[in-house]
Design a protein around this nucleic acid. Structure first.
Lengths: 149, 149
DNA sequence: TAGAAGTCTGGAATGATTCCAGATAAAATA
DNA sequence: TATTTTATCTGGAATCATTCCAGACTTCTA
């Protein structure tokens, strides 16, 4: 989604377009491939909107998530991460450096069939493989920057 | 896994078999289908081992998880949940009552192919669908007991 | 351009989980 | 069986991402 598309979506949802939200939208677009967490979003967005608070960052992430602008990947103990690619895919999560990569897959579960059998209706999914990325496998000594842990 | 098989595994791993661990193993077997969290495990296991502490419950869950006796499903804000079914499957998670059901699927991703393309090696997976279970869809008013939220 | 309502701020509160140091008990050894 | 070694247990304090709150501030409508 482009910046304008997101702003459009906010307006349609009756949400206000504030300078703080614009800053966060820009960060989501620029750093989306890193699947940034609240901390990184806060740090980056603060450069654009100097008075931005961490509370607002969290509130905005929640609001965006609620309105389908992003998805949040929730973890325990470590920061949650934001995802702006809303197509169905598997997240490949490196347990060493924290990098998250998207891997496209053909849809594999027949959801109608599943619902018939179980009565369960799907609204959202979370598909993750944990393991080690190429960089971390090749070079176990070096800590790879521009990623998290 | 049976109680004896788990005890066997602990011994092989050089872990001690204590009354607290036996109590927790029994709870994991009896309540495994509920995907219990630390709180429920603590509550139930305490009936069997009266002096059990919450710290020990957490430490034991971590130890078991580290040694492949269980898997933990980590969430943010709410309790993590334990899973004793270690076969590949999708967890169907009801967003209303917190129930987690297992749904078997044929493996859908060719992992070798994925590794060739991305360099990523998988050690563990987490596949989840969020939505609403049959009970919660049919009866939106009633809160369904024996489950969580 | 004024007012209503949504949003922002920073500090305090939350709550699941982890950490710690002293006490305890499992299992190896004699 | 008694002794020793060392993993494990306990309860309370600490952690830390996230949420809550009340007062201040914008956005947007009319």
């Amino acid at each position: 989604m482009t910046k304008d598309a997101i702003i459009q979506k906010l307006k349609e949802s009756g949400l206000r377009v504030t300078s703080q939200r614009i800053a966060i939208i820009e960060v989501l677009i620029e750093k989306g491939h890193l699947h940034p967490g609240a901390g990184l979003i806060y740090k980056e967005a603060r450069k654009k909107s100097r008075s931005l608070s961490l509370s607002t960052t969290y509130a905005t992430i929640n609001e965006f998530s609620r309105h389908g602008v992003i998805k949040t990947l929730q973890f325990d103990g470590v920061e949650n991460r934001c995802e702006s690619n809303l197509d169905e895919h598997i997240n490949l999560i490196c347990e060493r450096c924290g990098k998250i990569m998207d891997y496209k897959i053909p849809p594999s579960v027949d959801q109608k069939d599943m619902t018939r059998r179980t009565g369960f209706v799907v609204t959202n999914s979370r598909l993750e493989y944990y393991g080690y990325c190429r960089d971390c496998r090749q070079d176990k000594k070096r800590r790879h920057k521009h990623y998290y842990l």
